[in-house]
Amino acid sequence: MAHTFESLTAWQVMLAGLVFFGGIYLLFGIATWLLTRYVLPALGWGGVLDTRPLVPGQLRRELTQSSVSILIFGLGMIFPWGLLQLGWAHLDPDAGGWQIFLEILVLVAWNDVHFWVNHRLLHTRLLRRFHLPHHRSVVTTPFSTYSFHPLEALMLGNVILLPMVLHDFSFWSLFSVPLFSLFFNCVGHANYDFFPRVSYAHWFAASRRHHLHHACYNGNYGFQFTFMDRLFRTRLPADAASAQLAMAGRRGGVERSV
């Protein structure tokens, strides 16, 4: 598979990238939407985190912005392919199962570091205007995952480039990055508490933490895990959005009673 990827033309790489990123976005997004809107509630498993309604036109906006991100991610496959063509990076065609497993663990950890750094930069005065399109989704959906400004898509989409020049990864290890990244992203933006009995600090409470990031705007800059927010003291308390949600609930009650 590694040899096949390297032997593709530039146009074939970009076309394959567009099909791949578009396909996984729709597959993961629709699956998470159905799971959290119909299947899990019917089973009595977990619950919605923010019960406020979506703003009018939100899904259409998220899909439109996401299509631009998919275009950037897909065409951006030219960069890892280019590193291989230039000889600045290489794939390991002989990697065994244990090596691939360990490489994926390293990439999972790196993904969290890379995301935290870029996400924190996007909340600075210099760059925050480029992050605001994503934060228009205060109540998130699985389709919020790629709903970025193009600059944010460029910043987050370069996650594998540095690891590639530092180590000869297996093709399958690198291939796993957009898959686990989008999976974690869908979980974080699902607006659904999948495991309400686990602690707020637990890995499985990532949806709670990212829900608070969108509700409060600042804090909880991490991806799936908490080690970067713990290290830099940017983790929000579990009740950080209680006041906003309570106020929204009171407004909703008044509006419904009128």
Rank of each mutant, 00 (worst) to 15 (best):
S69H: 06
S69V: 07
I70M: 11
I70G: 01
I70Y: 01
I70L: 10
L71Q: 02
L71A: 15
L71P: 13
I72M: 07
I72D: 02
I72A: 03
I72W: 00
I72S: 03
I72R: 01
I72F: 01
F73C: 02
G74Y: 02
G74V: 06
G74W: 01
G74P: 04
G74I: 05
G74M: 07
G74T: 11
L75W: 09
G76A: 07
G76F: 07
G76P: 03
I78D: 00
I78F: 15
F79E: 01
F79M: 14
F79N: 02
P80V: 05
P80L: 10
P80G: 04
P80I: 10
P80M: 11
P80R: 07
P80F: 03
W81P: 02
W81T: 03
G82Y: 09
G82N: 06
G82F: 12
G82L: 12
L83D: 04
L83F: 08
L83W: 03
L83I: 07
L84A: 08
L84E: 07
Q85L: 12
Q85R: 15
Q85T: 09
Q85V: 03
L86Q: 15
L86H: 09
G87Y: 13
G87N: 13
G87L: 14
G87P: 10
G87S: 14
G87F: 14
G87E: 13
W88N: 12
W88V: 13
W88I: 13
W88H: 08
W88T: 09
H90L: 05
H90G: 09
H90E: 12
H90N: 12
L91G: 04
L91D: 02
L91S: 08
L91C: 06
D92T: 00
D92R: 08
D92L: 09
D92I: 05
P93M: 11
P93R: 10
P93Q: 10
D94S: 13
D94L: 12
D94C: 00
D94H: 13
D94N: 14
A95K: 10
A95R: 05
G96M: 12
G96T: 11
G97C: 12
G97Q: 05
G97P: 09
G97L: 15
W98V: 13
W98H: 11
W98R: 08
W98Q: 14
Q99W: 00
Q99N: 05
Q99C: 04
Q99K: 01
Q99R: 12
I100R: 02
I100K: 04
I100W: 06
I100N: 04
I100T: 13
F101G: 11
F101S: 11
